[in-house]
Amino acid sequence: MKFSDRITRLQPAATRVVSERAADMRRQGRDVLSLSTGEPDFVSPPSVMRAAQDALDAGKTFYTPAAGVVELRAAIAAYYKSRFDLDYTPSEVMVGAGGKPLLYEACLALLNPGDEAILIAPAFVSYYEQVRLCDATPVVIQTDPATLDFSLDDIRAAITPRSRLIMLNAPNNPSGRIYSDDLVVGLCKLAMEHDLTIINDEIYERIVFDGRTYRNPLNLCPEAREHVLHINGASKSYAMTGWRIGFAIGPAALIKKMTMLQGHNTSGASSIAQWAALGGLENGQDEVDRMADSFQARKDLITRRLDDMPLLRYIKPEGAFYIFADARATFGKRYGEIQITDDISFCEALLEGAEVATIPGSAFLQPGFFRMSFATSEAVITEAMDRMQRFLTELE
Results as ranks from 00 to 15, higher is better:
Cys347Asn: 11
Gly38Trp: 01
Asp5Ala: 12
Ala58Pro: 00
Ser271His: 08
Leu111Asn: 08
Val70Ile: 14
Ala146Glu: 15
Asp326Glu: 10
Asp181Ile: 04
Leu72Ile: 09
Arg16Leu: 15
Ile302Asn: 00
Lys316Phe: 05
Pro367Trp: 05
Thr330Arg: 02
Thr376Ile: 08
Arg50Asn: 12
Phe321Pro: 00
Val288Asn: 05
Phe346Met: 03
Met260Pro: 00
Gly250Val: 03
Ile249Lys: 03
Leu56Asp: 01
Pro138His: 13
Leu312Met: 12
Ser47Arg: 03
Ala379Ser: 14
Gly336Ala: 09
Val69Asp: 10
Gly96Glu: 00
Gly242Val: 05
Phe331Leu: 10
Glu226Leu: 11
Ala66Thr: 14
Gln53Cys: 02
Tyr88Gln: 02
Gln296Glu: 15
Arg177Ile: 14
Ala253Cys: 03
Tyr314Ala: 09
Gln285Ser: 12
Asp41Ile: 02
Ile245Pro: 00
Met25Phe: 14
Glu193Ser: 08
Leu187His: 01
Ile315Lys: 01
Lys2Leu: 13
Gly246Thr: 12
Ile199Cys: 01
His194Leu: 06
Pro46Thr: 04
Ile203Phe: 09
Gly361Lys: 05
Ala248Cys: 11
Phe84Glu: 05
Val131Ala: 09
Ile120Cys: 06
Leu56Cys: 08
Met388Thr: 15
Ala51Pro: 09
Glu202Asn: 13
Tyr79Gln: 11
Phe324Ala: 04
Asp87Gly: 07
Asp85Met: 07
Leu10Met: 12
Arg313Asp: 12
Ala269Asp: 11
Leu218Tyr: 05
Asp5Val: 04
Arg290Met: 14
Ala78Phe: 00
Gly280Val: 01
Asp5Glu: 14
Thr160Ala: 04
Lys100Tyr: 09
Asp343Ile: 02
